[in-house]
Nucleic acid binder design. Sequence first.
DNA 1: TCGACGTATCTACGTTCTTCGATATATTGA
DNA 2: TCAATATATCGAAGAACGTAGATACGTCGA
Lengths: 117, 117
Amino acid sequence: MNTTGERLEPVTCCAPLAAPALSEQEAKATAELFRALGDPARVRLVNLLATAGEPVCMCELIEPLGLAQPTVSHHAKKLVEAGLVEREQRGKWAYLSLQREAVEKLAAVADLKEVCC
Amino acid sequence: MNTTGERLEPVTCCAPLAAPALSEQEAKATAELFRALGDPARVRLVNLLATAGEPVCMCELIEPLGLAQPTVSHHAKKLVEAGLVEREQRGKWAYLSLQREAVEKLAAVADLKEVCC
DNA sequence: TCGACGTATCTACGTTCTTCGATATATTGA
DNA sequence: TCAATATATCGAAGAACGTAGATACGTCGA
């Protein structure tokens, strides 16, 4: 999809829903951010990270999510790409943690009282 | 999709992302809510309603969105079903307005500091 | 009554998404 | 060095999605 090589940073590029003049670009970034949480598996993954409060090994997510390992890897990648989750390699293990600032920015985007991001 | 007749109310059924024990049902409801805003056209539609501050005739949304009339109708329906937008019939015109409480609830769901919906 | 207009639905098409088995790569421990 | 383990990627199948043309329905004004 992105052939130019420039990476979109949805979390930093999107504007509040009530922004006076939402550009096409901003709308796309905002939609991508919301879409990242538009799947039950990813909502549960984020929930697991939020309640854990500390980085969680990816291997410990497979069972609670009830999905195959490639599927969990796929969803984790989506969340990392959206900026909502951070991935940290520790030897052969991959640890995921919540990007709390990104999630808070998401809440700010949905906040109609917010004027600016 | 829903053959039993029971209507899901995503806005009232979903729980915060940081909820201690997110059920499968709640995760699905939360995902549906986020997914409703997971398309640029719907983000712009919500933005138009948010900045208008008053009900907007659907016929006035076609041009700014740059989409065909059936497509706008389709997106509007999705937003109404998600509870984010209210639809009001006035003669042959359909007026859309933002369900501000629902959008605020969405922001609360994304708020990690919130304990309960 | 009739034509114009606004809207929803039907249908179809191409794209994207979710899922998982198979497989490749890398790291650890023996 | 070798087997076991964790993870990512590839490839494929089925479902869901976005879009718009055609069409049907209802309302308004003449």
